[in-house]
Amino acid sequence: MDLVETVIEEARWEGFGLPALAERAARAALAGLGLEASGFAIVVMGCDDARIAVLNADFRGKPQPTNVLSWPSEERGSDFAGEAPALPEPGPEDDPESLGDIAIAWETCACEAAEQGKTMEDHVTHLLVHGVLHLLGYDHVEDQDAALMEALEVRILASLGVSDPY
């Protein structure tokens, strides 16, 4: 059973292979935290800059495109800066626990990858791992939380053969 349900709103994501990449990145993120993918579900939407700008305005009050947005199904963050959030309990395989939704924008990702001299695949993999960690309660508002989240991203990405993005 797939961990990730992928919704394609921008056709370039289909040709890019977003469904397989999202599945791989999400499985690696969960495995990096010792979680079994079979008990969880995530929805990833591949969209364009126009769509993500509307979502960013609606949910964050920022009416401009961004690379990735995440909507956790519930608040999972720790109350203490630098402390890892409690891990969610998996659901049964036939009714997995929803972790939430992620949206990723084609044009912003392509532009950032080019500017940073990264392959689109590596950059999107990083953003998807980042998004999954947000669904699990990690954030980067406080310096201690950012350090924790970034170290986890680097370790998970290394398991996928992706270089340190920082």
Rank of each mutant, 00 (worst) to 15 (best):
F80E: 15
I42S: 09
I42H: 00
A86P: 13
A20G: 13
R76K: 13
A25D: 03
P96V: 08
G61C: 02
C109R: 01
G91C: 12
P92W: 04
D48F: 09
G91N: 10
V68D: 04
W71I: 01
L21F: 04
S98P: 15
R51M: 06
C109A: 12
D101Q: 15
V54D: 12
G34C: 05
D48R: 13
R60F: 10
N67V: 02
S73W: 08
C47A: 14
E74H: 06
F80Y: 14
M45E: 14
L99N: 12
F40T: 01
T66N: 11
A25P: 05
P72Y: 04
R51C: 00
L21W: 06
I104C: 06
R60P: 04
K62E: 06
G100P: 13
A110I: 05
R51G: 00
E23S: 05
D58V: 04
P19N: 14
T66W: 02
G46R: 00
E83G: 11
P72I: 03
A105F: 02
E74V: 10
E93L: 05
R27N: 08
G82T: 14
F80K: 14
E36P: 11
W71L: 13
L33F: 09
S98R: 10
P96M: 08
I102L: 15
E75S: 14
S73Y: 08
G46L: 00
E23Q: 14
P90K: 11
P88M: 09
I104A: 08
C109G: 07
F40I: 03
M45R: 10
F59L: 03
A25S: 14
A103E: 11
S38D: 11
I102M: 10
L21K: 07
E74W: 03
P96Y: 00
I102K: 09
L87I: 12
R27Y: 02
E89Q: 14
I104H: 11
D94I: 12
A105Q: 02
A31H: 02
P65L: 03
T66M: 04
L21Y: 11
D101A: 13
R76M: 07
A103T: 09
A81C: 15
T66S: 06
G100I: 01
A81N: 15
R51F: 09
F40P: 10
G82M: 13
G100Q: 10
A110R: 05
P63L: 03
E23G: 06
P90D: 15
G46P: 06
P85M: 15
G82K: 14
S38C: 07
D58Q: 11
A41Q: 02
D49I: 01
P92R: 09
P65C: 05
D48W: 03
I102C: 13
D101N: 07
A57G: 00
G34E: 09
L33S: 06
E23R: 08
P63H: 02
L30C: 05
L30Q: 03
P63V: 01
A25E: 12
N56R: 08
